[in-house]
Amino acid sequence: MSKISEFLDLWGDQIIEAILQTFQMTSIALLISILIGLPLAAFLVLTRQGARLENKYVYGFLNTVINVIRSVPFIILLFFILPFTKFIVGTSIGVKGVIVPLVVYTAPYIARLMESALLEVDRGVLEAYEAMGIPTKKIIWNVLVRESRPAIVLGLTIATIGLIGATAMAGLVGAGGLGDLAYRFGHLRYEADVMYVTVFLLIVLVQGLQTAGNVIAARLRKD
């Protein structure tokens, strides 16, 4: 028991701070990525071949851009877009500086996941709503997104877990977080306990997220 309290005395504050930083980075980046990724997915679904707003140029362009960004590993992307990051938020370091690359990394990923979720919706249902004279904008939100909620939740769970993985590299630009803690103290300073504890916390976090995602998706699914 004394060993645990000794450990907590020594590392407690830093671990809590790291957890908060990870939560902060993940939630802000996730939110912005959804705001970009979901409309992007809707565009992909609506402009693909045979869809109602079929447009091979728009579709081809979005498709290529997403593939290009998705080809670059996060650790390279982080440095590759430094000038862009600085242009957008005025700095390239700290939590603020890491949000931009996290979003650039996650939004296309979410777009892809949401695209496959939206494609699950039966086209006949969309057609039925079109036949009732309901405008496309309302159909997207009230039918397309509504019907694919279970798949969207599962997709977002996957995206969030991927995002947490990416935040581990945020330490490289001084944004902190659990990954950074494990790397700097656990690895560089041979504090094995810190390494074990952070890895354990990450496992708990990911398990919890996946379970929550599965439960919510199952509850939304009615068939």
């Binding site: 039966d122 006949g124 249902v125 057609e127 039925a128 036949a131 009732m132 039918v143 509504r146 019907e147 909620r149 279970p150 939304l220 699914r221 009615k222 068939d223």
Partner: peptide, 14 residues
């Protein structure tokens, strides 16, 4: 103009 279909086309989640 109402329309009905062979596949019903209802919202599954509603």
């Amino acid at each position: 103009i109402g329309m009905i279909f062979q596949g019903f086309n209802l919202l599954k989640t509603a």
